[in-house]
Amino acid sequence: MKPFTYERATSPADAAAKAASIPGARFIAGGTNLLDLMKLQIETPAHLIDLNGLGLDKIEDTPDGGLRIGALVRNTDLAADMRVRRHYGVLSRALVAGASGQLRNVATTAGNLLQRTRCPYFYDPNQPCNKRQPGSGCSAIGGVSRQLGIVGTSEACIATHPSDMAVAMRVLDATVETVRPGGAFRAIPIADLHRLPGDTPHVETTLEQGELITAVTLPKPVGGVQLYHKVRDRASYAFALVSVAAIMQPGDTNGIAWGRVALGGVAPKPWRVEAAEAHMKQGAKAVTAGLLADARPTADNRFKIKLAERTLAAVLTEARG
């Protein structure tokens, strides 16, 4: 671990300003991902700005009937919140499907959105990785890639975003609120937060240098049956091979009136294609075909296409009741 300096921010705006002006500064909240990466010297911040104690850990009702989730609300607290459980069940289910109880007690809402990939080549500093060391190449392509992405990937990177929570947020049409280094606020639709890798897989979000996530807001509840189905090799404490976050309104034709679906474990960001949802009444095959039309799997992870389709089929069956 490289030596680093540390300070506690005094306000979100102060944090953002300092993060923009101090070279090598990084925010720290729960630290469940950053500290691991620092130990492996994959992240080598010169300065840590601690966001704990800024009052960003509250869950509040919004005037339009939605929910405003502070950036530092712990995963455990968010999953257990009665409003979340009642009206945003997909989020609660996704949260408890992630990590372990100990990690969820510490991990935060914004930290979860900004966690780095779990690609094993990213985690091994001896291996070329365009995300870790821009321009060095991608050793995952042609390597061990069973866990990695099938869609939205590029010639430079096939890593996935590992979050469960973010997949649920995507299907809920969440909005990310930030404060910029100059003190201005902005709201970013969650669909626009994460970038696809293209030629620059090391640039993972649309956030500016120093820009701080202060909250995630959820629009007013849309109802429906809200499910999160995570598929993995072991029963707990594993990243998704494929996950399906879904909100389904049971109805007349084929049992589904309308539905929204996003996939985890397959792409560099929570993967949702709104146009594909128009096919919900035709069933899982049609929706998955739309979702994964541009899939470019490896030999190791081609199975994820069928797995996504079958998992969605199981979700549809469950939603129909």
């Binding site: 094993p120 985690y123 061990v144 069973r146 090799d233 707990s236 404490y237």
Partner: peptide, 28 residues
Amino acid sequence: MEELAVDKRRGFFVNHDLAGYEVPVHAD
């Protein structure tokens, strides 16, 4: 679940931590 995944080009076990090398947890 247990398999040390071999990178056959570079000659090493890729999943060299307990997140990558899965062993059963209680729920299993």
